[in-house]
Write a protein that binds this DNA or RNA. Structure first.
Lengths: 206, 206
DNA sequence: TGTACATCAGTGAACGCGCGTTCACTGATGTAC
DNA sequence: TGTACATCAGTGAACGCGCGTTCACTGATGTAC
């Protein structure tokens, strides 16, 4: 008696990973509000009690998904940075473009990443992922103004991040450019980015 | 037979208003996640079915609370603006301070205000409240750079708002300065604000 | 190579929960005459 | 000034829902001997 190939094995293989993938997709489709463990299980074709073997709670799964998000965000920024003209200023702008593009393409995930509770933020894997994103941003700023005093660098790190994050957040929440075409919106974003980089150069310049 | 003064009247008097007030407080205490109609009713000392006479749904109540929030935000910005040195640049910074202070003092409400769905944003009362906030901000920018071309003004409106909103959002979400004292954090915020206003002046100056 | 057995990763039933909303109702209010 | 009556704003019971989590279980896997 040969089992057909389509028979589902009793063991999933890598349910943990499957739940993360399914959860991420669910998040994008339904938002945080529509995110449930049971639906994640359904999408992974598994009973709703199965996830308990891999995640202690729904928050643990969300935290893992957010950590992946920060990893991807960092990757997106790096990829865009590599595509830039190679100057420090060009790279800073490009990373900003990568940041905004990632947020726009994964808005629910992005929202999740920036609405985590304090206890979630303390999870080592997540903290590490966030640390990488921060570090990448800091490096890009420091490359633009290598000779500036530390406090100025810190100010510019805050400032640059705030303007990029603020702009795309306001766009995602419908506060900016809800009547604009995607093209017009992108141009407004680029304007913010170039204003930002000019400020960094001028403020941190020797 | 005289009824004691403490006897609850059958009719509430102004349940609609009471629900908004209770809801706002609940939002601050429990966040959006812990916000329920039934708890609002409980806090207004009324049966859980009573709110239906005043709000068609829980979202309608949330929308109203958000609209109040935008009103208060505008008031807070104006109040801080009046306390400034009277120069256009000083007023712009002061309004930014008011914005950040409001967000910090009402973080859950602030989060609600910036996580509204498209259909909620279309509610006339809310749209009007948001419009006032936008207008106030725009005026402050235009006063700083009255002679700049319209596109530059628009760019600076976007830019200034993005940097202020981005900074305080990142702080509230624990991404910036989670190890800082409130005093240190405020100084980082002020640094962002002064960098912002310098940029506006320089970019829009004749 | 075979077998016993511990461990792991699933299942499906059940629990308890609080929610939003609906419904028939009733007490209170205010207005027309 | 009094009365009938429509309307309004509450009540409390009920409905149906899907959720997270727990539990005893069982099938599958892998390892020691």
């Amino acid at each position: 008696m040969v089992k057909p190939m389509t028979a589902k094995p009793y063991h999933h293989g890598d349910l943990r990973e499957a739940l993360i993938v399914a959860g991420r997709k669910l998040m994008e489709e339904r938002g945080l509000r529509g995110f449930t463990l049971r639906e994640c299980a359904r999408r992974a074709s598994v009973s709703h009690a199965a996830p308990a073997h891999h995640f202690a709670s729904i928050d643990a799964l969300l935290t893992e998904i957010a950590a992946r998000g920060f990893h991807e965000l960092t990757q997106a920024m790096m990829a865009e940075g590599r595509r830039s003209d190679g100057t420090p200023a060009g790279r800073l702008v490009a990373q900003g473009v990568g940041y905004m593009a990632f947020a726009a393409a994964n808005s629910a995930l992005f929202r999740l990443m920036f609405s985590l509770e304090a206890d979630q933020l303390e999870t080592p894997a997540l903290a590490a992922a966030i640390g990488s994103t921060h570090a990448l941003h800091r490096e890009a700023i420091e490359a633009v103004i290598p000779d500036a005093p530390a406090e100025v660098k810190q100010r510019m790190v805050d400032f640059a991040w705030a303007s990029v994050h603020g702009f795309i957040t306001l766009v995602l929440e419908g506060q900016i450019g809800d009547k604009d075409s995607p093209r017009a919106l992108k141009s407004r974003g680029l304007a913010v980015l170039s204003t930002m980089v000019e400020t960094v150069v001028r403020t941190g310049g020797s």
